[in-house]
C-alpha cells in the first residue's frame, strides 16, 4: 500500500498531538467535574437549577476533551471524524429526551400519585 513510503508517525492524524493540549485537557476536565462535585455537595440551588448546572458543566467538559484530547476540528483530516461524532448529539438527545418526555407524561397519567415522585 502506498502508505509505506510515508513515515506513519508523520501522518496528519498522529502529528496533531501535543503535551500542552493533553495536560490542559486533563486539568480542565478535572477542574470542571470538581466544580460540579462542589456544587452538588454544597446543595447550591434547587434541584432543577443544580441538574441544569451539572448537565451544562458535563457538556463543557466533553467539549474540552474533544478539542484538547481528541484534537477534533474541521480540518481536512478530521472533518469526517468530527461529523461522525456530532451525529451522536441529536441521537442522544432524541432517545433520552423523548423517552423521558413520554414516560414522565405516562407516569403522571396512569400511576398512583405517590409513585410518580422522584
Amino acid at each position: 500500500m502506498g502508505i509505506d513510503n510515508l513515515k506513519p508517525w508523520e501522518h496528519p492524524e498522529i502529528k496533531g498531538a501535543s503535551e500542552v493540549q493533553y495536560i490542559s485537557g486533563y486539568a480542565l476536565s478535572l477542574a470542571l467535574l470538581g466544580l460540579s462535585l462542589l456544587l452538588v455537595r454544597a446543595h447550591a440551588g434547587t434541584t432543577v437549577v443544580l441538574v441544569s448546572l451539572i448537565s451544562f458543566i458535563s457538556i463543557l467538559t466533553v467539549i474540552a476533551q474533544l478539542i484538547l484530547l481528541f484534537h477534533l476540528d474541521f480540518s481536512e483530516s478530521q472533518r469526517w471524524n468530527t461529523l461522525t461524532l456530532m451525529l451522536n448529539v441529536p441521537l442522544l438527545i432524541l432517545s433520552v429526551g423523548l423517552t423521558s418526555f413520554m414516560f414522565h407524561t405516562l407516569y403522571t397519567h396512569v400511576m398512583l400519585p405517590a409513585m410518580t415522585v422522584r
Partner: peptide, 13 residues
C-alpha cells in the same frame, strides 16, 4: 464524564 454527572452527581442532588 456522563456517568459521573448523571448517575453519581444527579443521584445525590
Amino acid at each position: 464524564t456522563f456517568v459521573f454527572t448523571f448517575v453519581y452527581l444527579r443521584g445525590s442532588v
